[in-house]
Every structure is written in structure tokens, then in C-alpha cells.
Simulated assay, not measured.
Amino acid sequence: MRVLAALSGGVDSAVAAARVLDAGHDVVGVHMALTRNRAATRSGSRGCCSIEDASDARWAAEILGIPFYVWDLSEQFEERVVADFLAEYRAGRTPNPCVRCNERVKFDALLERALALGFDAVATGHYARLTGGAATGHPGRTAGLELRRAVDAAKDQSYVLAISGREGLSRALFPLGDAPSKAAVRAEAERRGLPVAAKPDSYDICFIADGDTRGFLTRSLGTSKGALVSPDGKILGTHSGYFGFTVGQRRGLGLTRPAPDGRPRYVIETRPATNEVVVGPAELLHRSAVDGQELVLLAEPNPLGEGAVGWRDVTVQVRAHGRSVPADVAVDPVARTLRADLRQPLRGLAAGQSIVIYGTADAGSGGERALAQATVSQSR
């Protein structure tokens, strides 16, 4: 196969490209330039897609002996990820920009260009496993395609990939899905002579390199003085914009007086219409049911009785590295919605988050399978 290897400039994508090359494929490396600030530099482990990352990607390609190109996808990234991020916060929701980037840039804009140039598949350094599609030498085939968790549970990225659906994943290769650990990947990079073997991982939101999300939102959306209120409507303080807060947040509330009972207070809700931020005790964050919209099915649902379809005895995850909890899930494929009834409460759910449904491991499958994904619309 002709495979386009996405080289971010980090160790994972470099080793992934090397493994695809070892498998006998015709490989070309490409680095996605996602920032409009051409002078952008990396700050320790913060940020990505910087000048340093592009140079590291080129260096890795030279050592592997594969052609290398830089593609400017900054316009698509700005429109499909950054603008969406700001719009979601403006609407009082909490988005995950990594989920949107995977869907709209890495498995949309990138794949679109790759197919137009005659490539069969795209390989990335994500930690996840695929069966079917390009993974079995049949790029584009969605029948039988399954997305499963990576061997290394601590690095598993199936959560952020599920939104791409079977169509988007059918031409993807994830060579690191069976890697036992990140340490093993670094060791492999060192053996191969790749210069990024010891490069630190990037974290936080890549387009907010200083890690100051509230500052970024304030600079982008401005300020608007509003009230911090208790669940019963008592004014406790002020803030400069509801969009600077997210459900479950404890620090940075700006309250000078403790709660009457001395317990910590958390953001329970943000109200865009009135520019209010509701704060209260931790128990008000607990949710036992979740509704989702924009459903993406990765497996066919089972009959549940009385015309309903979905799954029983599955697990749901609502954060990239959050714990999974058991649940029963009903879906409406026509309306593209789901409802998850949780058997254990989850804390701090916010509209806009991604919810992924996982099935328990089948005998010999070697990992939980992602069954569906949706965007949280509300929780109770």
C-alpha cells in the first residue's frame, strides 16, 4: 500500500512510520503545520506543531529514508478546531479540541488530501488498535472494522478516535496499538537511531502553549462581568465571563469567603443567558444518566425490547483518561442520540464532552471495543 505517515515531530509518530516501512509499504512522511504563527516555538512539554516539531519530523524522515513534506493545514485547523472551541465555550459547553482535531483535521482534511494524491491509507502514532479496513490490507472497507483499546491502557487514545467513525478509520493504521508501554516505544526509537527518542510528550491544548486556557478565552471572547451564585440564587461574588469556567472546576473561583460548612465549592453549572456561574458542594456534581447527540455508531446495536436498541452491561467514558463506569445504553440511530444509565455515578459531567461506549472484551479479542460515540447534551 501507499501510506502517508503523519509525522508530528514526536517519538510516537516517528516509530509508527518506521513500523509501517518495516511492513513493506511505500511510505511518505508529512508534517501538518497547524498554527498560523510561523514563529511559534515549543515551551517544554507544552504546545505542538511548532518550528522545532517540523524540524524534528524532517530529521526523522531523513533517518528513515522516506520523502517528506510539510502541509499547511492551519486554515482548516483554525476553522474546524479553534473556532469550534471558542463557539462551544461561548455556548456554555466544555469541548475537547483533541477529539475535534482527530475528526476534522487528521481524519478529514489530511485523509482527503491523501486520497486525492493516490495514497491508500494514513498512519499515525495514536495508541489504539484496529481490525479490518487498512489494518488487514483492505483500505476503505468498513465491514468488520473494529476500534479497540491499546495494549497500554495508560496511553490508550481510542477515546479521541471514536468520533471518526468506521468510514474515517477504515483507511487508518495505528502501528503502536500493540506497544506494551511508552518506555518501550522510546527504547525502540533509540535502537533505530531516531533523534526524538527522549523528546518530552506534548500535553494540554496544543494551540494554548502557555496552558492558560482562561486567559486565551478572555483574549478571544473578551470580558463580561457576571455573578457567582449559590444553587439557591444567593450572590457569592463576581467573575469576568462565564466561559472562563467549566463544570467541576474548584480552583480559580475567586471567592474570598468559605462556604458556611467549610467544605470546598465547585462549578455546578454555567448560564450563558444570564452570565451566571453556579457554585456548590461536590455532591451536586454527581450524575447517574447522560444524554448524547451527534451519535457515531462503531458497532451495530442490539435489540433491548419494545423497539429499543443499544447495549446492556457496557462501560462509558467521558474524559480522555477518565475512569470507565458500567452502564446500560439505548441509542436512536435515526435521531442520532443516546441515553446512558450509569450504574455508578460520575462527577462533573459537562455538555460538550465526548462520551464513548465500550463493550467488554470478547474471548481472544485482547481489549475493549469502542461501540459508539456521542457529544454530551445533558446529564442528570
Score class of each variant (00 low, 15 high):
269 E>R: 06
270 T>R: 07
228 L>M: 13
290 V>D: 14
318 V>N: 11
326 P>K: 04
219 R>L: 04
275 N>E: 00
335 A>I: 09
303 P>H: 10
248 G>W: 08
236 L>F: 09
279 V>L: 11
220 S>G: 00
235 I>P: 11
230 S>Q: 00
307 G>E: 07
294 E>R: 12
246 T>R: 14
258 P>S: 05
306 E>S: 15
266 Y>D: 12
258 P>F: 02
315 T>Q: 15
318 V>Q: 07
304 L>A: 13
261 D>V: 07
341 D>C: 08
269 E>L: 11
233 G>W: 01
272 P>W: 02
266 Y>E: 06
236 L>T: 02
246 T>C: 12
284 L>F: 06
331 V>R: 02
237 G>C: 03
303 P>E: 03
329 V>M: 02
332 D>C: 00
305 G>A: 00
258 P>D: 05
334 V>F: 12
231 P>H: 00
264 P>M: 13
300 E>P: 06
306 E>W: 12
243 F>W: 14
259 A>T: 13
334 V>D: 15
236 L>Q: 04
339 R>K: 14
240 S>P: 04
240 S>F: 07
295 L>Q: 09
291 D>T: 12
308 A>M: 13
228 L>I: 15
315 T>Y: 08
231 P>F: 11
225 K>N: 05
309 V>W: 01
325 V>E: 14
223 T>C: 06
257 R>K: 13
326 P>I: 11
318 V>S: 04
292 G>R: 03
301 P>T: 11
292 G>L: 03
319 R>Q: 15
304 L>S: 06
285 L>F: 09
240 S>Y: 04
233 G>D: 05
319 R>I: 08
339 R>W: 10
304 L>W: 05
277 V>G: 01
304 L>T: 12
317 Q>W: 11
332 D>V: 07
306 E>P: 08
237 G>L: 01
341 D>K: 09
258 P>C: 13
239 H>F: 02
267 V>R: 02
328 D>E: 04
251 R>C: 04
231 P>I: 01
284 L>M: 13
339 R>G: 13
275 N>F: 01
270 T>F: 03
342 L>G: 03
340 A>P: 10
321 H>K: 14
331 V>D: 03
219 R>M: 09
309 V>E: 01
319 R>G: 13
282 A>N: 07
341 D>M: 12
302 N>D: 14
273 A>F: 03
330 A>G: 13
309 V>R: 08
227 A>S: 11
221 L>C: 08
262 G>N: 08
243 F>D: 03
224 S>M: 04
